[in-house]
Amino acid sequence: MKSAVIVFPGSNCDRDVQVALRASLGAEPLMAWHGDAALPAVDLIVVPGGFSYGDYLRAGAMAAHSPVMREVAARAAAGVPVLGICNGFQVLCEAGLLPGALMRNAGLKFICRDVHLRVDNARTIFTSGYAAGQVVRMPVAHADGNYNADAATLDALEGEGRVAFRYCAADGAVTEAANPNGSARNIAGILNAAGNVLGMMPHPERLAEAALGGTDGRAMFDAVCAALAA
C-alpha cells in the first residue's frame, strides 16, 4: 500500500503524519510537494496540518487552489481515501471536497489541548478501529476550527451518518462545555457523501504513541492502513 502526504509551503504537521503513517504502515509515505504537477498512484492521501500559505486570505483558501489539489480532487472522486487534518480539513472545505467552513474559534484565541471526541460513525475506512459511540482523546491546535454550515447541510450530514466525530465530555456527553471552538452541533470531523474523504480538526497523529501521552490516534492510522493493505 502506498500513501502520500501533501506538503504546502507552511505545512508543519507533515513530518508528524509521516511518522504516524510509517509506524502503522511499515512503509515510507511519499511526501508530495504541492508544486509537483503529477501525483503518483497512491492508496491514501493525507493533507496535513499547519499554516499553508501562512493562513493568508483565509485558512486553507490559497492551498485549495494549488495545482496538486486538482489532482487530489480527481483521486478523491475516483474513490481514493483522503484524510485532512486541521489545516488539511480547512483546505478540503475550501477546495469544495467537503461542505461547510471553519471559522475563527468562538473564544477568538488559538487553542492547544487534548479534547474528547465521540465516534459517531465507526463504519468508515478511517474509523473502523473504533466502536460507535466510543470516546477517544486527541489534541486540537487551531485558531480557526469553528465548523459551520447551513442548517440543511448540517441536517444532511447528520442524517447520512457523515458526522465522524463530535466534541464531547470524558463520559461521552455532547455538551456545550465540551465544545472547544463553537463548532455547530459539536462537529469535529465530517465525511463526504461517498465516505472516502474525512476532514477533522483534532490531530490523531499527535496521540499515536504512548510516549506522547496516548494512543487513541494510532487506531485511525492502523485501521486505514490495514483496510487498504487487505
Binding site: 504537521c13 508528524d16 504516524a20 488559538f110 487553542i111 492547544c112 491546535a141 499515536a208
Partner: peptide, 16 residues
Amino acid sequence: VWEQYDHMVMADTVQR
C-alpha cells in the same frame, strides 16, 4: 497562556 501555544507540534513533546 500555554494553551494558546502549540506545545505539541513536531510530536516529540514528552513532557508538556
